[in-house]
Protein backbone atom coordinates (compact mmCIF):
# COMPACT_ATOMS: atom_id res chain seq x y z
CA UNK A 1 0.00 0.00 0.00
CA UNK A 2 2.77 2.41 0.99
CA UNK A 3 4.61 1.53 -2.20
CA UNK A 4 1.49 2.19 -4.26
CA UNK A 5 0.93 5.58 -2.65
CA UNK A 6 4.47 6.51 -3.53
CA UNK A 7 4.13 5.25 -7.07
CA UNK A 8 0.94 7.22 -7.62
CA UNK A 9 2.56 10.28 -6.19
CA UNK A 10 5.42 10.05 -8.66
CA UNK A 11 2.95 9.47 -11.53
CA UNK A 12 1.02 12.50 -10.39
CA UNK A 13 4.18 14.59 -10.36
CA UNK A 14 5.04 13.43 -13.87
CA UNK A 15 1.51 14.27 -14.98
CA UNK A 16 1.80 17.76 -13.53
CA UNK A 17 4.88 18.37 -15.64
CA UNK A 18 3.30 16.84 -18.74
CA UNK A 19 0.21 18.96 -18.44
CA UNK A 20 1.94 22.04 -17.16
CA UNK A 21 4.83 22.26 -19.60
CA UNK A 22 3.09 20.45 -22.43
CA UNK A 23 -0.60 21.21 -22.68
CA UNK A 24 -0.60 24.47 -20.76
CA UNK A 25 2.61 25.69 -22.30
CA UNK A 26 4.16 26.77 -19.04
CA UNK A 27 7.69 26.11 -20.27
CA UNK A 28 9.10 29.04 -18.43
CA UNK A 29 7.71 27.86 -15.11
CA UNK A 30 8.90 24.29 -15.55
CA UNK A 31 12.11 25.05 -17.35
CA UNK A 32 13.32 28.04 -15.38
CA UNK A 33 11.48 29.02 -12.19
CA UNK A 34 10.95 25.62 -10.65
CA UNK A 35 14.48 24.32 -11.34
CA UNK A 36 15.95 27.51 -9.91
CA UNK A 37 13.73 27.39 -6.88
CA UNK A 38 14.57 23.72 -6.38
CA UNK A 39 18.30 24.31 -6.62
CA UNK A 40 18.02 27.13 -4.11
CA UNK A 41 15.94 25.02 -1.68
CA UNK A 42 18.46 22.21 -2.01
CA UNK A 43 21.52 24.33 -1.32
CA UNK A 44 19.98 26.37 1.48
CA UNK A 45 18.14 23.41 2.99
CA UNK A 46 21.15 21.11 2.91
CA UNK A 47 23.39 23.69 4.53
CA UNK A 48 20.74 24.57 7.08
CA UNK A 49 20.35 20.95 8.13
CA UNK A 50 24.08 20.39 8.45
CA UNK A 51 24.45 23.60 10.46
CA UNK A 52 21.59 22.52 12.74
CA UNK A 53 23.37 19.22 13.42
CA UNK A 54 26.65 21.04 13.88
CA UNK A 55 25.05 23.28 16.50
CA UNK A 56 24.23 20.25 18.64
CA UNK A 57 26.98 19.49 21.10
CA UNK A 58 29.12 16.36 21.20
CA UNK A 59 29.42 15.89 24.96
CA UNK A 60 31.13 12.49 25.01
CA UNK A 61 33.60 10.51 22.99
CA UNK A 62 31.44 7.59 21.92
CA UNK A 63 32.91 5.95 18.80
CA UNK A 64 31.93 2.35 18.12
CA UNK A 65 35.20 0.47 18.28
CA UNK A 66 35.41 -2.26 15.65
CA UNK A 67 38.91 -3.59 16.20
CA UNK A 68 41.79 -3.91 18.63
CA UNK A 69 42.45 -0.77 20.69
CA UNK A 70 45.79 0.94 21.07
CA UNK A 71 47.23 -0.39 24.31
CA UNK A 72 50.50 -2.25 24.84
CA UNK A 73 53.17 -1.56 22.24
CA UNK A 74 53.52 -5.21 21.25
CA UNK A 75 49.81 -5.70 20.64
CA UNK A 76 48.91 -4.92 17.05
CA UNK A 77 46.31 -2.19 16.99
CA UNK A 78 43.60 -2.02 14.38
CA UNK A 79 44.50 1.51 13.34
CA UNK A 80 41.48 2.05 11.08
CA UNK A 81 38.71 0.15 12.86
CA UNK A 82 39.75 1.54 16.24
CA UNK A 83 41.74 4.65 15.32
CA UNK A 84 43.80 6.60 17.82
CA UNK A 85 45.12 9.19 15.36
CA UNK A 86 43.44 11.74 13.11
CA UNK A 87 44.81 9.93 10.06
CA UNK A 88 43.15 6.77 11.30
CA UNK A 89 39.83 8.53 11.79
CA UNK A 90 40.02 10.06 8.31
CA UNK A 91 40.77 6.67 6.77
CA UNK A 92 37.91 5.12 8.72
CA UNK A 93 35.54 7.78 7.41
CA UNK A 94 36.82 7.38 3.86
CA UNK A 95 36.24 3.65 3.98
CA UNK A 96 32.77 4.27 5.33
CA UNK A 97 31.80 6.97 2.85
CA UNK A 98 33.50 5.65 -0.27
CA UNK A 99 33.26 1.89 0.21
CA UNK A 100 30.41 1.45 2.73
CA UNK A 101 32.68 -0.47 5.09
CA UNK A 102 30.04 -1.20 7.71
CA UNK A 103 27.49 -2.45 5.22
CA UNK A 104 30.15 -4.83 3.91
CA UNK A 105 30.10 -6.60 7.29
CA UNK A 106 26.51 -7.61 6.76
CA UNK A 107 25.56 -11.19 7.52
CA UNK A 108 22.33 -13.01 8.03
CA UNK A 109 21.41 -15.26 10.92
CA UNK A 110 19.50 -18.42 10.14
CA UNK A 111 17.81 -20.65 12.68
CA UNK A 112 18.36 -24.31 11.84
CA UNK A 113 16.19 -27.13 13.06
CA UNK A 114 19.14 -28.66 14.94
CA UNK A 115 18.85 -25.73 17.35
CA UNK A 116 21.78 -23.78 15.97
CA UNK A 117 21.95 -20.25 14.69
CA UNK A 118 24.27 -19.90 11.72
CA UNK A 119 25.39 -16.73 9.97
CA UNK A 120 25.49 -16.57 6.21
CA UNK A 121 27.43 -13.93 4.36
CA UNK A 122 25.08 -11.37 2.89
CA UNK A 123 26.72 -8.81 0.64
CA UNK A 124 23.86 -8.05 -1.72
CA UNK A 125 22.74 -4.93 0.07
CA UNK A 126 26.30 -3.67 0.09
CA UNK A 127 26.67 -4.40 -3.62
CA UNK A 128 23.30 -2.91 -4.49
CA UNK A 129 23.96 0.23 -2.46
CA UNK A 130 27.42 0.66 -3.94
CA UNK A 131 26.13 0.13 -7.49
CA UNK A 132 23.31 2.59 -6.92
CA UNK A 133 25.37 5.37 -5.39
CA UNK A 134 28.28 5.14 -7.80
CA UNK A 135 26.17 4.89 -10.94
CA UNK A 136 24.16 7.85 -9.68
CA UNK A 137 27.37 9.77 -9.12
CA UNK A 138 28.69 8.99 -12.61
CA UNK A 139 25.38 9.89 -14.22
CA UNK A 140 25.40 13.14 -12.29
CA UNK A 141 28.93 13.91 -13.47
CA UNK A 142 28.06 12.98 -17.05
CA UNK A 143 25.26 15.53 -16.95
CA UNK A 144 27.83 18.24 -16.38
CA UNK A 145 28.30 18.25 -20.14
CA UNK A 146 24.99 20.07 -20.30
CA UNK A 147 26.22 22.79 -18.01
CA UNK A 148 29.73 23.42 -19.33
CA UNK A 149 31.10 24.79 -22.58
CA UNK A 150 33.62 23.57 -23.55
CA UNK A 151 33.00 20.25 -21.79
CA UNK A 152 35.98 19.45 -19.50
CA UNK A 153 38.16 16.51 -20.50
CA UNK A 154 37.31 14.66 -17.30
CA UNK A 155 33.61 14.67 -18.08
CA UNK A 156 34.24 13.57 -21.64
CA UNK A 157 36.54 10.84 -20.31
CA UNK A 158 33.85 9.51 -17.97
CA UNK A 159 31.39 9.55 -20.83
CA UNK A 160 33.59 7.60 -23.19
CA UNK A 161 34.42 4.95 -20.57
CA UNK A 162 30.75 4.68 -19.71
CA UNK A 163 29.81 4.08 -23.34
CA UNK A 164 32.72 1.82 -24.22
CA UNK A 165 30.52 -1.07 -25.29
CA UNK A 166 29.45 0.98 -28.32
CA UNK A 167 26.06 -0.64 -28.49
CA UNK A 168 23.11 1.07 -30.12
CA UNK A 169 22.80 4.63 -31.24
CA UNK A 170 23.06 6.82 -29.28
CA UNK A 171 25.60 4.58 -27.58
CA UNK A 172 24.41 2.83 -24.48
CA UNK A 173 25.76 4.02 -21.15
CA UNK A 174 26.68 1.13 -18.84
CA UNK A 175 25.74 3.17 -15.80
CA UNK A 176 22.18 3.52 -17.07
CA UNK A 177 21.80 -0.23 -16.89
CA UNK A 178 23.50 -0.52 -13.51
CA UNK A 179 21.46 2.34 -12.15
CA UNK A 180 18.09 0.93 -13.17
CA UNK A 181 19.10 -2.54 -11.95
CA UNK A 182 20.27 -1.19 -8.60
CA UNK A 183 17.20 0.95 -7.96
CA UNK A 184 15.00 -1.97 -8.93
CA UNK A 185 16.88 -4.22 -6.51
CA UNK A 186 16.60 -1.67 -3.70
CA UNK A 187 12.89 -1.45 -4.36
CA UNK A 188 12.28 -5.18 -4.70
CA UNK A 189 13.99 -6.05 -1.42
CA UNK A 190 11.65 -3.63 0.32
CA UNK A 191 8.66 -5.45 -1.11
CA UNK A 192 9.88 -9.02 -1.03
CA UNK A 193 11.81 -9.37 2.26
CA UNK A 194 9.12 -9.46 4.96
CA UNK A 195 11.07 -7.64 7.67
CA UNK A 196 12.24 -4.95 5.31
CA UNK A 197 8.69 -4.49 4.07
CA UNK A 198 7.58 -4.19 7.69
CA UNK A 199 9.98 -1.33 8.43
CA UNK A 200 9.50 0.47 5.11
CA UNK A 201 7.53 3.67 4.99
CA UNK A 202 6.12 5.90 2.29
CA UNK A 203 9.25 7.97 2.58
CA UNK A 204 11.34 4.93 1.71
CA UNK A 205 9.43 4.09 -1.44
CA UNK A 206 8.84 7.62 -2.63
CA UNK A 207 12.49 8.61 -3.25
CA UNK A 208 13.11 5.26 -4.95
CA UNK A 209 10.23 5.78 -7.37
CA UNK A 210 11.18 9.39 -7.85
CA UNK A 211 14.74 8.46 -8.71
CA UNK A 212 13.54 5.63 -10.90
CA UNK A 213 11.22 8.08 -12.65
CA UNK A 214 14.11 10.44 -13.27
CA UNK A 215 16.21 7.59 -14.62
CA UNK A 216 13.51 6.21 -16.89
CA UNK A 217 12.49 9.60 -18.27
CA UNK A 218 16.14 10.31 -19.01
CA UNK A 219 16.62 6.97 -20.70
CA UNK A 220 13.44 7.43 -22.69
CA UNK A 221 14.66 10.81 -23.92
CA UNK A 222 18.06 9.58 -24.93
CA UNK A 223 17.34 6.21 -26.50
CA UNK A 224 13.74 6.39 -27.62
CA UNK A 225 12.38 9.90 -27.99
CA UNK A 226 15.83 11.08 -29.09
CA UNK A 227 15.25 14.58 -27.86
CA UNK A 228 17.12 17.37 -29.61
CA UNK A 229 20.28 17.48 -27.49
CA UNK A 230 21.40 20.85 -28.85
CA UNK A 231 18.13 22.42 -27.81
CA UNK A 232 18.44 20.88 -24.34
CA UNK A 233 21.94 22.18 -23.97
CA UNK A 234 20.79 25.61 -25.03
CA UNK A 235 18.28 25.52 -22.20
CA UNK A 236 20.64 24.17 -19.54
CA UNK A 237 23.39 26.60 -20.50
CA UNK A 238 20.76 29.31 -20.25
CA UNK A 239 20.12 28.18 -16.69
CA UNK A 240 23.72 28.46 -15.58
CA UNK A 241 24.51 31.64 -17.51
CA UNK A 242 21.30 33.36 -16.40
CA UNK A 243 20.27 34.03 -20.00
CA UNK A 244 17.32 31.73 -20.25
CA UNK A 245 14.99 31.52 -23.20
CA UNK A 246 12.54 28.75 -23.95
CA UNK A 247 13.96 26.60 -26.73
CA UNK A 248 11.66 25.09 -29.28
CA UNK A 249 10.87 21.44 -29.90
CA UNK A 250 12.31 19.79 -26.77
CA UNK A 251 9.11 17.94 -25.98
CA UNK A 252 7.23 17.54 -22.74
CA UNK A 253 9.20 14.45 -21.65
CA UNK A 254 12.18 16.68 -21.00
CA UNK A 255 10.10 18.77 -18.64
CA UNK A 256 8.96 15.65 -16.83
CA UNK A 257 12.60 14.72 -16.29
CA UNK A 258 13.54 18.19 -15.15
CA UNK A 259 10.51 18.51 -12.89
CA UNK A 260 11.20 15.21 -11.13
CA UNK A 261 14.79 16.30 -10.60
CA UNK A 262 13.46 19.54 -9.13
CA UNK A 263 11.16 17.63 -6.80
CA UNK A 264 14.11 15.48 -5.70
CA UNK A 265 16.16 18.57 -4.95
CA UNK A 266 13.38 20.06 -2.85
CA UNK A 267 12.61 16.78 -1.11
CA UNK A 268 16.25 16.08 -0.35
CA UNK A 269 16.88 18.38 2.63
CA UNK A 270 13.50 17.47 4.14
CA UNK A 271 14.12 13.76 4.18
CA UNK A 272 16.26 10.79 5.02
CA UNK A 273 18.29 11.56 1.91
CA UNK A 274 20.18 13.88 4.21
CA UNK A 275 22.16 10.81 5.26
CA UNK A 276 24.55 12.10 2.61
CA UNK A 277 25.53 14.93 4.94
CA UNK A 278 24.75 13.20 8.20
CA UNK A 279 27.17 10.34 7.77
CA UNK A 280 30.04 12.80 8.18
CA UNK A 281 28.67 13.95 11.53
CA UNK A 282 28.05 10.57 13.10
CA UNK A 283 29.89 10.56 16.46
CA UNK A 284 30.20 6.78 16.51
CA UNK A 285 32.36 6.93 13.38
CA UNK A 286 34.10 10.28 13.18
CA UNK A 287 35.76 10.40 16.59
CA UNK A 288 39.17 9.35 17.77
CA UNK A 289 38.84 6.15 19.79
CA UNK A 290 41.77 6.82 22.13
CA UNK A 291 39.46 8.30 24.74
CA UNK A 292 41.68 7.39 27.69
CA UNK A 293 44.68 9.05 26.06
CA UNK A 294 43.07 12.37 25.19
CA UNK A 295 40.45 14.01 27.37
CA UNK A 296 37.32 14.92 25.46
CA UNK A 297 35.77 18.14 26.78
CA UNK A 298 32.02 18.41 27.17
CA UNK A 299 30.98 21.92 26.05
CA UNK A 300 28.05 22.06 28.48
CA UNK A 301 27.86 21.48 32.22
CA UNK A 302 25.57 19.43 34.41
CA UNK A 303 23.77 21.84 36.76
CA UNK A 304 23.30 21.34 40.52
CA UNK A 305 24.71 17.85 40.71
CA UNK A 306 24.60 16.15 44.10
CA UNK A 307 27.36 13.80 45.14
CA UNK A 308 27.61 11.45 48.06
CA UNK A 309 30.96 12.49 49.51
CA UNK A 310 33.39 10.34 51.41
CA UNK A 311 32.72 12.41 54.55
CA UNK A 312 29.00 11.60 54.43
CA UNK A 313 29.86 7.96 53.84
CA UNK A 314 32.29 7.79 56.75
CA UNK A 315 29.84 9.58 59.03
CA UNK A 316 27.30 6.86 58.38
CA UNK A 317 29.65 3.88 58.67
CA UNK A 318 32.50 5.09 60.92
CA UNK A 319 31.87 2.68 63.78
CA UNK A 320 31.66 -0.32 61.53
CA UNK A 321 34.82 0.73 59.72
CA UNK A 322 36.79 1.19 62.91
CA UNK A 323 35.58 -2.18 64.15
CA UNK A 324 37.23 -3.87 61.17
CA UNK A 325 40.38 -1.79 61.31
CA UNK A 326 39.56 0.12 58.12
CA UNK A 327 41.32 3.51 58.36
CA UNK A 328 39.06 6.53 58.95
CA UNK A 329 39.56 10.29 58.64
CA UNK A 330 37.96 11.16 61.99
CA UNK A 331 38.50 8.76 64.89
CA UNK A 332 35.49 7.72 66.98
Amino acid sequence: MKALYSLFLVFALAAIALVGAGALGMERTFGLYIPFLAAAVFVVGFCWRVVQWGKSAVPFCIPTTCGQQESLPWIKQSTIENPSTTTGVVLRMLLEVLLFRSLFRNNQPQLYSDGRVRYASSKWLWLGALAFHYSFLIIFLRHMRFFTEPVPALIRGIESVDSMLQIAAPTLYLTDLVFIAAVTYLFLRRVVVPNIRYISQVQDYFPLFLILGIGLSGIFMRYFAKVDIMAVKELTMGLVTFSWKAPQGIGAIFYVHLFLVSVLLIYFPLSKLMHMGGVFLSPTRNMNCASRKFRHINPWKFENVHYHTYEEYEDEFREKMVEKGIPVEKPL
Partner: peptide
Amino acid sequence: DICVRCGA
Protein backbone atom coordinates in the same frame (compact mmCIF):
# COMPACT_ATOMS: atom_id res chain seq x y z
CA ASP B 1 17.28 12.27 11.18
CA ILE B 2 19.42 10.10 8.95
CA CYS B 3 18.23 6.51 9.20
CA VAL B 4 17.25 5.24 5.74
CA ARG B 5 15.73 2.00 7.07
CA CYS B 6 18.05 -0.12 4.95
CA GLY B 7 17.51 -2.94 7.39
CA ALA B 8 21.18 -3.87 7.84
